[in-house]
Design a protein around this nucleic acid. Structure first.
Lengths: 225, 225
DNA sequence: GCATAAACGAAGGCTGTCCCTCCGTTTGGT
DNA sequence: ACCAAACGGAGGGACAGCCTTCGTTTATGC
């Protein structure tokens, strides 16, 4: 969760302290619930988990779309922030990338980055805003991946889409399984996934199956990554 | 879907031809819907997707539990069957295992194998039956994995649980994304996952993080695999 | 401190969905 | 051709989620 003034989108009068705190709690709860149950989840449950009355949620986010939007933008901001920190502190591209993966999974952000885009596709207002945030993130991520591949640390037949989708699936907790188990499993799978991205995993024949998801700019996933 | 007489559990009079057909369609639909939405999904949607009236579903499966049970047993049967075929036709353990993974994912079975167990845990009636099927599958799978590891083709720090959970996550389609996209993504991720299991992926340091999920026989996942 | 505007939570009417049964109709098997 | 078996859909009851209204609480500026 980014600090900020909790008002990166429209210019509102400025929230009271408790209101700002509640707003962030709602976004955090929404992020978790959306990942677990999808964006159709009950808003009342989100409010409950945020420790907040349902009215408070509606006061801050007039409809479901507004809440989704807020979560997505917040996620994007976290990613950007973390990316900058990593680029300063890590020695090479591969380290930056791997660190980013770990953060994204641990913070449960992965899923929403891609997952929520389709819903926003309808909304002409903020679609541009979200699209811009996403485009900017990709503009930074792509050269990073290229670099790591040139370093010879990551396999060459991987695309950003592969990584993004992998994160999405990793991040989704399995329903009807205890949280602790889910966390343990996710961590383990993440390390497996990271290993699978490394150059040593490529068996020379390249990935079986088509490059999948590369094409079709009109698709949910936007232009080829 | 296994053929059989559609009556592997209790001894019923013998179903009419159309009834048997409908029964299988319901199971198939249930498998898909359960994977997508969890076992709390609407039974009416399952009936709809099976192209069958809601009454027909209830006639065959008196309650939700019965349906879940049927799906699980069916899945187990398919796995066993496929395993036997693969063991006859494939040259080594690794090939058998990989082939099995591909079948399980393509048939959308993966998720349910583990996913449904917790729900059944409550039910004293059929729990034993399911537990037996599962135990028998594991008894066959474990030596297979060991063999593949001895062959030096699969990394040594992998457990059956790792594989099972990997399959579960792979198999779950992402909500609000077109089916075609989901299929393409899943296929791609599966190949990545398979590569990650190979010995060449291990970087010598072993998997970061604890062996996770190995212990606690009282857990959802049963005894260590 | 205290006044006041901002923010809060909970109750409740409304709507839609899902569960499950009942019953008139259709269909497979002999 | 007969009839038991199987079918589908309508519909009542229950319930969960949406969103608003309203009386109460709390942060903030003087």
């Amino acid at each position: 969760m980014l600090e900020g003034d909790g008002n990166m989108t429209e210019s509102a009068p400025r929230l009271r302290a408790d209101a700002r705190r509640n707003r962030e709690q709602v976004i955090t709860a929404a992020r978790e619930v959306f990942i677990e149950q999808g964006t159709e989840a009950s808003l009342e449950e989100i409010a409950r988990r945020a420790g907040v009355g349902i009215a408070t949620l509606y006061r801050r986010f007039p409809d479901r779309g507004a809440l989704i939007r807020a979560v997505v933008l917040d996620n994007m901001a976290v990613i950007t922030e973390e990316l900058e920190a990593a680029e300063k502190e890590e020695p090479d591209a591969e380290s930056v990338l791997v660190r980013l993966l770990r953060v994204v999974v641990r913070r449960r952000i992965g899923a929403l980055v891609l997952l929520l885009l389709p819903s926003l596709h309808e909304d002409p207002t903020t679609h541009e805003q979200v699209r811009a945030a996403r485009a900017s993130a990709i503009r930074r991520l792509r050269p990073l991946l290229r670099a790591a591949q040139r370093e010879g640390r990551l396999r060459g037949d991987i695309t950003i889409t592969d990584i993004a989708l992998g994160l999405v699936k990793l991040s989704r907790p399995l329903p009807m399984i205890a949280a602790r188990l889910n966390d343990a499993a996710t961590e383990r799978q993440l390390e497996l996934f990271i290993d699978s991205l490394r150059a040593s995993s490529a068996d020379g024949t390249g990935l079986r199956g088509k490059p999948a998801l590369d094409a079709d700019p009109n698709d949910v996933l936007g232009p080829p990554l």
